[in-house]
């Protein structure tokens, strides 16, 4: 039995989208080729109303914009950080946990688009910082020492699962467990939590990134930082040290939310550990699915919840326990 599923785009200027036109809306029964309301996952806006009042068409979809590279910083053999000039509107829209864009070298064709989490967005300067791990074709094409301009398609927002738990925690304590390139999407999460009066502890494991490149961002925000190995690559499990640390944190240090930022195996380890020790603690995590279109169209990001339901993770917000909890 699933909990409540939500579409990250519901009620935004990009809703209704392509899926409404094809009768595949994630939220609205009227836009799933049914003729009656069954609004289980209401998100504050009647999407059918929006669709009809928009003359039964989707809203204008996201466009790609050129972005000048303001700064290119080489962190390690495999990680670079780009500071990119955007407009103020896009910077503002990207200034939230889970925000990401599709990025490609301006000269490359559209299928080089690679999803990149926003590590930091500065509305005043109209710029965003992204950390890129050089892994394959798309990211290598971005790793040119003389790159001057990229193309950004966005904004997209579903880079973090369990957003409502992050947004719902106030004046509490939160623990962020990050590894490798997963440090990047954890920065806006930390910022959001700090702004809501929480005290935030961050565990950094450089992982395959080869450096704790986000440390200075977390320090600037006022997070408490611990450097520890989080994940054992040989056994694909959490290290005993981190298991014990998380257990103590939730049992003795009244942590209200644990955020996992790394691989799916890491999410699974932390999620199950929480379920067995402190099931009332909220769990959120980075979204590690393979995004390709970001619009719920191509299907590359699909996964299944523990009850077998197929979901499109590029758009679906849900309690990540439904994916990583291993069933009730």
């Amino acid at each position: 039995m699933q909990q409540v599923l939500n579409c990250i785009d519901a009620g935004t200027e990009y809703c209704p989208c392509f899926l409404a036109e094809t009768g595949e809306c994630l939220m609205c029964s009227q836009l799933q080729r049914k003729t009656f309301c069954d609004c289980r996952n209401w998100n504050g806006v009647c999407i059918y109303q929006e669709y009809i009042s928009n003359r039964s068409q989707k809203k204008e979809h996201r466009k790609a914009l050129p972005g000048r590279i303001l700064k290119r910083e080489v962190i390690s053999d495999s990680v670079i950080i780009l500071k990119i000039q955007v407009n103020k509107t896009l910077a503002r829209e990207l200034s939230q946990p889970g925000a990401y864009v599709f990025l490609k070298n301006i000269k490359d064709p559209n299928y080089f688009d690679a999803p990149m989490s926003i590590m930091s967005a500065d509305e005043r300067e109209a710029s965003v910082d992204v950390a890129i791990q050089i892994k394959g074709v798309k990211t290598r094409a971005l790793d040119e020492f003389n790159i001057t301009e990229v193309s950004l398609r966005g904004p997209y927002w579903n880079g973090v699962l369990g957003l409502k738990y992050i947004k719902g925690v106030q004046e509490q304590k939160a623990l962020l467990v990050t590894r490798g390139i997963g440090q990047a999407p954890a920065v806006p999460v930390a910022k959001k939590l700090i702004l809501a009066g929480n005290s935030v502890e961050v565990i950094l494991d450089q992982g395959r990134a080869g450096a704790n490149f986000a440390e200075k961002y977390f320090r600037e925000l006022g997070c408490e930082i611990k450097i520890k190995p989080v994940f054992d690559l040989k056994t694909l499990t959490l290290t005993d040290e981190i298991k014990e640390y998380i257990r103590q944190s939730v049992l003795e240090n009244s942590i209200k939310l644990v955020y996992s930022s790394g691989s799916d195996k890491m999410h699974e380890g932390i999620c199950r550990l929480l379920l067995s020790t402190a099931p009332d603690v909220f769990f959120a995590c980075s979204n590690g699915a393979s995004f390709c279109c970001g619009e719920g169209v191509c299907g590359s990001c699909h996964t299944r919840t523990t009850d077998g339901t197929r979901i499109k993770t590029c758009k679906t917000q849900l309690n990540p326990v439904e994916i990583f909890g291993g069933g009730r």
Binding site: S29, Q30, F36, C37, C39, C46, Y48
Partner: peptide, 12 residues
């Protein structure tokens, strides 16, 4: 709810 009021009536 609203969708029904729209489809079968004059809207919300």
């Amino acid at each position: 709810p609203m969708g029904n009021c729209l489809r079968y009536g004059n809207g919300c």
